[in-house]
Design a protein around this nucleic acid. Structure first.
Lengths: 250, 250
DNA sequence: GACTATATGCGAACACTGTTCACTTTGTCA
DNA sequence: TGACAAAGTGAACAGTGTTCGCATATAGTC
């Protein structure tokens, strides 16, 4: 009987939560504020010491809370990391989208704009970048089919769409691959868009890998001993070379 | 007087150490064995849990020694990491050299052999790879101009030499860069080899970044959702595309 | 061979980490 | 007002890297 009452109450609360997205009650507002504060502190700490150095007790200290209290908001360190990793994926995807848009109408400008934004965001947020593309944090396992892999796929699909856009405008003529598309490539193409040409899949993956490699090595300061801190010209030149080899016009 | 005696004794010892590289004394043999054992245990642990998860107390446990005892052999965790990172650089460089040699006489075969070896080593030793190209370990700072940066440069120079080899055989005709070589590029070229053409510097760097990106993303399983575990064909095809765009014949 | 300086190794301690648990205080809602 | 859930705390546990003082084993010198 008690549990039934409780259940119905919980259900009512859930409904009200879904209904009133304006966070009416005082508790909800406070909670949202606390969550935001925690995340902000965690992000600041990651920017300083990197993902693997994130300390729960540290963020508890900076926001003036006991370490145990954090567990009311996140499932420990792993839960917090899951959220931050998801955020990083989305932030990168947003930055790329903005970079594409800044390219105006010209397909090549849009494409290059996305790539440049990829690099810029990564250099400005190296530790968030490494949260995604660095060493997996020891002891942390992303939840299966959880928010991080969803964000990962979202980012990947968005990138493929940039290629499709140029393709459909007829300005994209990568050298034809002598090999026929594999089943997995056809499958992915269909999943992305009915119009997506399967032979574009490996081309886009290779392109991604290329400028991702450039970005990674720059974030890790692997070009410093050659170019010092003036790597931008090299990067731009390399992107031009890449675009030429893809025969992306416009 | 005492100190003078002591100094001369130390000097004699140093001389004898330099002279008898055969590790005559019992102590030296034992020490070498212990060092090797520690390194082996650390390497095994890194292979399991990754670099940032390396636990000094853990290796002490597996070799049956007290944690404090390790400090007679390494300057704490950082010292051990410095050695392991250096080893990783050298192991990768060795693997690449072997891959090049396996290509026989044909320049293109040699070049591709090196790249394939780069990928293979990285996939077989992902955690050593990430030790070098992953997130810097929190709290660890490589000693300035220490062994790790030396090993890093050694690896880089070796890679440039592979390019020079193909160049000198007249089989390497990358599309000419419209931009004149920068001072840093000329400087590096001279430092590498008097015969090294400066315009080859950015080409080789770009090439490295390209297949490094492919390798990184594969190590981090970022292709899995598309290709499953059959990524080798994609990689090989991509390398062919890269070689064609570089116009490396033979 | 005895003596002494050095290398090796250990246990205890310190400051730190993530996490759990029992407990109190605070807010919400019938 | 009363009941119940949420929020927050402090103590505790097991784990980490590191330092210090002390014991022992080895090496080289008189």
């Amino acid at each position: 009987m008690r549990t039934l009452f409780t259940l119905s109450r919980v259900f009512a609360k859930l409904l009200s939560l879904l209904h009133t997205a304006g966070m009416t009650t005082r508790r909800e507002r406070l909670r949202a504020a606390t969550v935001a504060e925690i995340k902000e502190a965690a992000l600041a700490q990651i920017a300083e010491v990197g993902g693997p150095g994130l300390s729960l007790r540290g963020v508890a200290r900076t926001i003036g809370m006991s370490p145990a209290g954090l567990y009311r908001y996140y499932e420990g360190r792993d839960g917090l990391l899951t959220e931050l990793i998801t955020d990083a994926y989305n932030a990168l995807a947003d930055a790329v989208a903005e970079g594409v848009a800044s390219g105006g109408e010209a397909p090549r400008e849009r494409f290059v704009g996305g790539i440049r934004a990829y690099r810029r965001w990564s250099l400005e947020n190296p530790n968030q970048f490494l949260l995604i593309f660095g060493t997996p944090i020891p002891g942390y396992a992303a939840p299966r089919e959880g928010p991080t892999v969803a964000a990962n796929r979202r980012m990947g699909q968005q990138f493929f769409m940039i290629g499709l856009e140029a393709w459909q405008q007829g300005t994209f003529h990568p050298s034809p691959d002598s090999r026929a598309p594999t089943p997995s490539e056809k499958e992915l193409a269909e999943l992305l868009d009915p119009e997506f040409p399967p032979e574009l899949v490996p081309v886009m993956l290779g392109t991604w890998a290329h400028f991702h490699g450039l970005t990674t090595l720059e974030v890790l300061s692997q070009f410093d001993w050659i170019y010092g801190d003036d790597t931008e010209a090299f990067f731009d030149r390399e992107i031009e070379r890449l675009m030429d080899s893809l025969a992306l016009e416009g």
